[in-house]
Amino acid sequence: MTSGRKKLFDENTALNAAMDVFWQKGYVGASLADLTKRMGINKPSMYSAFGNKEALFVKATQCYIDTKMKPLIALLFEENVTLKKRLKNHMMSIVSMQCDTSDAKGCYLALCQSELVSGDIPEQAEQLLKEADAMPIQVYTELFNTDVEAIKLGLNNNAQANALSLYTVLKGTASMARSGIDKSALEYSIDSILVGIGVH
């Protein structure tokens, strides 16, 4: 009786490679050939390890949320750092990632969320994208409603609107980064929105 064939690839490495493909091409634009080529595996191995394209996309999206998104959100809650510095560090870290040449430029989530209107995103993937889209506004709103410094500045008075303003700018910088605008040029937009909502 023969034992099962040993895997010849690292699942985490393959998953990160798939994430890069979706980041560059979106869900709809990423073909199975694109994915398996970048992952360095064949289709049977992909199906065996990750399931179909939708299942792979869900796992890649969760990987993005856990490894890219959540660590940058944590910057908002650093201790002994002013609110202005926390917000600037958080937003500029996102812009840096959007402009990073080592990954596909722009924002993975913004690109894939823009495909939702097409109706071509499967249900489970659509739900995860919608939840991820809501997360930043929820986090910013909570920050403005609970942070002592934010309350002193009156940011709690229009917490959700202020949160939406920050997220709108970050979606805009994602688009600009994908168009080739560099980080230094986008920093002015970050500084401007912080001043605009009353962070000083």
Rank of each mutant, 00 (worst) to 15 (best):
residue 118 S to N: 08
residue 87 L to A: 02
residue 154 G to W: 01
residue 108 Y to F: 15
residue 44 P to I: 04
residue 67 T to A: 10
residue 112 C to S: 14
residue 179 S to R: 09
residue 139 V to D: 04
residue 16 N to K: 15
residue 137 I to C: 11
residue 165 S to N: 05
residue 107 C to Y: 12
residue 84 K to I: 01
residue 177 A to T: 04
residue 174 A to K: 03
residue 52 N to F: 01
residue 55 A to F: 00
residue 196 G to L: 15
residue 171 K to M: 02
residue 200 H to R: 15
residue 153 L to F: 09
residue 158 N to D: 11
residue 115 E to I: 06
residue 35 L to D: 12
residue 32 L to S: 13
residue 133 D to A: 14
residue 45 S to Q: 14
residue 100 D to I: 03
residue 46 M to K: 01
residue 103 D to L: 14
residue 127 Q to R: 14
residue 101 T to W: 14
residue 153 L to S: 00
residue 7 K to P: 07
residue 119 G to R: 02
residue 28 V to L: 09
residue 135 M to R: 05
residue 18 A to N: 02
residue 76 L to I: 08
residue 160 Q to W: 09
residue 21 V to H: 11
residue 163 A to I: 00
residue 126 E to D: 12
residue 51 G to T: 10
residue 200 H to C: 11
residue 44 P to C: 05
residue 8 L to Q: 13
residue 134 A to S: 11
residue 59 K to W: 04
residue 69 M to P: 00
residue 150 A to L: 01
residue 69 M to E: 04
residue 154 G to Y: 08
residue 38 R to Q: 15
residue 45 S to V: 09
residue 197 I to A: 08
residue 62 Q to H: 12
residue 155 L to A: 05
residue 117 V to K: 13
residue 119 G to Y: 07
residue 40 G to F: 04
residue 130 K to L: 14
residue 198 G to R: 06
residue 198 G to Q: 13
residue 102 S to D: 15
residue 149 E to H: 00
residue 137 I to E: 06
residue 12 N to T: 11
residue 197 I to C: 09
residue 193 I to E: 12
